[in-house]
Simulated scan of single mutants.
Amino acid sequence: MSETPAQPVIEATPALAIDGFWLYLLFALLATAGFFYINIMAAIVDGLITGLDFSNAQAGMVGSANIYGASVGALCAVFVVRRVEWRPALVILFSLLMAIDLASTVIRDPTVLIAVRAVHGLIGGLSVGIAYSVMARLNSPDRAFGVLLVLQFGLGGLGVMYLPLLVPLYGAQILFFVLATLTAIALVSMLAIPKRLCKNRSRAELEAIPASYRKLTVILSLLALFLFQAGNMALAAFIIRLGEHAHLTRDFIGQALGWATWIGAAGAGLVIFMGTRFGRLRPLIAAFLLTFAGTAGFFWSESQPIFMVANVGTAITWSFVVPYLFGMISRLDPTGRLAALGGFVSKCGLASGPLVAGLLLGEDNFDLLIWVAMAALALSSLAAFAAARQVDQLEPAT
C-alpha cells in the first residue's frame, strides 16, 4: 500500500516582543488614513447629492474615481514596497493627502472633483499598500487585519451616523475636512511605532509550498476578495438612498447605519479572538450564509427592524470575511507583496461596486441592484471556500 503524500505545512514564526495588539492598532490607523473615505462612502455619496446637487451617477463617479485611483496606487505599491523605507514614504504621502482633501473643499464642479479625487485615491492607495506590506509580515496577519477592520468600522460608524446630519448645516466641505483630520492624526501616530518592527517570515515557508498549489490558492483568494468587496459596496454606497426610497426617515437611516457599523465591528473582533484555531473554511461558510440572509433582507427595507437587522448582519460578515481573505493571501508570501496586491484587488472591487450600482439604479431600481449584489456574493463564496480549504490543508490550526 502506498502512503498518501503529506501536505506541506506553513510553520508559524515566533512573534517578537513588540508584535502585539497595540502595534496592530497603530498600523490599522495608518492603513485607515489612506482610504477612510471608503468606510464613509454612503455619507460622501449622499453629501455630494444633497450638498452640491450632484446626480446619482455623478456622485457615484466621484466615489468610484477615488477608489479606482486607490486601486492604481495599490498596484504601484506592489512594485515599490521592497524598495522604499515605509516611514519617510508615508510622511510624504500623508502630507499630500491632507493637501488634496483641503483643496477638495472648494471644488463644486463634478468633473474637476472626479479628477482630483482620482489623484487622492492614487496617493492613498500607495500609502495603504505600503502599510499592508508591513502588516502582512507581522506574526498573525489575520488578527492584524482584524484590528484594521475593527478600527475602520468603529470610525465608519461615527461617520455614517453624523456626517449626513452635518452636511445640511456645513455643506459637503465637512466630508473632506474630516478626512484631512484623520490623516493628520495618523501622521502623528507614526511617532509611537518602534523602528524595529518585525522580521520577514522565513523563505523556507514559501519554498515548502508547491508553486502551482500556491498560485491557485492566491488566485481564488483574490477573486473572492474582489467579488465580496464589489457586492457589498454596490449596496453600501447607496444604502442611504435605498432607505429613503423605502420611505424611512433620514434620522433613522443615519442611526441604523451608525449602530450597524459599530455592531458590525464584532465580526473583526471574532477574527482577533479566534485566529485560525477553527481553520478558515468553517467560519467562512457561516459568515457567507449570514451575508446572503442579510443582503436578501434589503428587499424589505420599508420595515425598520428588517432594515436594521440587514445592515447589522452584513456589517458583521463584512468585517469578518475580509481579514480572513487577507490572512490567507499573507500566509502564502513572506515578503508582503501579495498583501499589497490584495489591497489593489480589494480596491478594484470597492470601486466597481458603486460604479455598477450607479449605472444599474436608473430610476431607483433597487431590487435589481440587490439581486446583482447577491450574485456577486454567491460567486465570491465559491472561490473563498475553495481557497480556504486549500490553506487549511497547508497550515495547521493555531
Score class of each variant (00 low, 15 high):
G124P: 03
S127M: 04
I130Y: 11
Y132I: 02
V134G: 08
R137H: 11
R137K: 15
L138Y: 07
N139F: 07
S140F: 13
A144M: 02
F145S: 13
G146A: 01
G146L: 00
L148T: 09
L149Y: 06
L149D: 04
V150D: 08
Q152K: 14
Q152F: 14
G154H: 06
G154I: 08
L155V: 13
L155Y: 10
G156R: 08
G157D: 05
L158K: 06
G159D: 10
M161T: 13
Y162Q: 08
P164M: 12
L165Y: 05
L165K: 09
L165H: 08
L166I: 10
L166R: 07
L166M: 14
L166Y: 09
V167R: 05
V167A: 08
V167Q: 06
P168D: 12
P168G: 14
L169H: 14
L169I: 15
L169V: 14
Y170A: 11
Y170D: 06
Y170G: 05
G171H: 06
A172K: 03
Q173E: 11
I174E: 09
I174L: 13
L175Y: 05
F176C: 04
F177K: 12
F177H: 15
V178G: 12
L179T: 10
A180W: 01
T181I: 14
T181C: 12
T181M: 12
L182A: 01
T183D: 02
I185W: 01
I185N: 02
S189L: 09
L191R: 15
L191H: 15
A192C: 11
P194F: 09
P194D: 10
K199H: 15
N200F: 02
R201N: 03
S202N: 06
A204M: 15
E205R: 11
L206T: 15
E207M: 14
E207R: 15
A208G: 07
I209C: 00
P210S: 09
Y213T: 05
R214T: 02
K215T: 14
K215G: 11
K215M: 15
K215E: 15
K215F: 14
L216S: 07
L216F: 04
T217H: 00
T217D: 01
I219Q: 15
A224D: 08
A224L: 09
A224C: 10
L225M: 11
F226R: 04
L227W: 01
L227I: 03
F228V: 12
Q229F: 09
A230F: 09
G231N: 06
L235M: 12
L235D: 03
A237I: 08
I239V: 10
I239F: 03
I239T: 04
I240F: 00
I240E: 00
I240A: 01
R241A: 02
L242H: 00
L242C: 01
G243T: 05
G243D: 04
E244I: 11
E244Y: 08
E244C: 08
H245G: 01
H245P: 01
A246G: 00
